[in-house]
Simulated assay, not measured.
Amino acid sequence: MTFQTLKKYAAPYYRNLGGWRTRRKILVIESDDWGSIRMPSRQVYERCLKAGYPVDRTWYERYDSLLSEDDLELLFGVLSSFRDAEGRHPVITANVIVGNPDFAAIEKSDFQNYHYEPITETFQRYPKHHRCWSLWQEGQRHGVLMPQFHGREHLNVAMFMSALRDGNPDMKFAFDNRMPGCIPKGPQRGPNLYVETTRFRSKAEKAAVLDATLEGLDLFENLFGFRSRTFIPTNYVWSSDFNAAVRHAGVEAYQGMRLMKEQQSAGTSHPVRRRLGDRNDFGQFYLVRNANFEPSQSAEPRLRAVDRCLHDIQAAFQMGKPAIISCHRLNFCGFIDEANRDQNLKALKAMLTAVLRKWPNVEFVTSEEMLDILKSTPREGQGASWA
């Protein structure tokens, strides 16, 4: 075994050092970006390529869009075909962007004022999405979908509006094609920085980020009829200065990676390490993702993602941890490229089949239920503990 092979094998075990432990085989699937428009259509994708924007080189621009009615029905069909020992289906914790830019209203204001629309209105603007809101509700009723909060929009409003007012040609192209930001072309090629919602570069922008987050949490409640108890900041960027306000707004736990990005006032950030079950000064828990099922984010064959995810799950269970899987929405999206969805659903079936075969006592739970398990465990509880 080479050093690189050994390192790759050992990495999932290292990620699970410290923090809360349990003998239960708990599996959580956390999926970000539900509701965000990202790439509006296949036609816009082709228009971007023709204009010289390398959208084929970035996974999110290549595949990610609103899940269509077909996408949802096929995904829910896969999830509902599996049950754990308690009769529960695998359930997606869908981290929802509750709004998108209202491009017409922004243009009407001569780009002086930002406006957004709720996702229920966005669905009506798309050709294969009119029933998506009712399908989301159906997914909730059948226990395969549980919404939680991800942001008011997946967009840095300050950067977006500043670029529009300055006449930035890339942003003008993106706006005309109803995209939330763009990737640059030419020698300055890079990622779409406009989607980094929570970054700020001044005190005014910092205040606006918090206001948008709190407004988004209220809109989430208006849409779904309940407060979101967990929250995953977009792009894993957050300021701990916001913790008190969002705790008051009902957020009891943050989802995220082992390394999160603590935002600084100058627009920079530094990594902060989290362990499962850690709590901050306001009593908010941290849920830490320790497994990945992201087949769309690799050029490798889709089934390689199954093997990697199963290795992550095995490491988590052997280390006494729940398996909390990161699985972004783009993996289920066929609105831009149906092959992306179809291949990944086959991989999802293979992964769930293997999980139930190898760990028949696995428990499918949501992020919110994982929070309740953490809250109900004494510091030295039966079957669970902190290390």
Rank of each mutant, 00 (worst) to 15 (best):
Q4N: 03
K8V: 09
Y9W: 12
Y14F: 14
R15L: 15
L17D: 10
R24L: 11
E30Y: 05
D32I: 06
S36N: 08
M39V: 09
M39C: 07
V44R: 00
L49F: 10
P54D: 06
V55Y: 07
D71N: 13
D71K: 00
L72E: 07
E73V: 12
G77S: 07
V78L: 05
L79T: 06
R83Y: 03
H89E: 04
A94E: 00
A104Q: 15
A105L: 02
E107M: 05
D110A: 15
F111E: 07
T120Y: 01
T122I: 03
T122A: 10
K128A: 14
W133G: 03
W133M: 07
W133N: 02
S134P: 01
L135Y: 04
L135A: 04
W136Q: 03
W136D: 00
Q140G: 12
H154D: 02
H154E: 04
L164D: 04
D166L: 09
M171Q: 02
M179R: 11
I183R: 07
K185I: 08
P187G: 06
Q188V: 07
Y194L: 13
Y194C: 01
V195C: 09
A207N: 09
A212F: 04
T213Y: 02
E215M: 05
E215N: 09
E221I: 08
F226N: 03
R229V: 12
R229I: 05
T230D: 07
I232L: 12
S239D: 15
R247P: 03
A249N: 08
M257P: 03
M260T: 11
K261W: 13
Q263K: 12
S265E: 14
H270E: 10
R275A: 14
Y286P: 01
L287V: 08
A291V: 01
R304G: 04
D312P: 06
D312H: 15
Q314M: 11
G320F: 06
R329E: 07
C333Y: 00
D337V: 00
Q343E: 14
L348C: 06
K349G: 02
M351E: 04
T353N: 12
A354M: 05
L356F: 13
K358C: 09
F364R: 02
D372G: 08
K375D: 12
S376C: 10
G383H: 12
A387T: 10
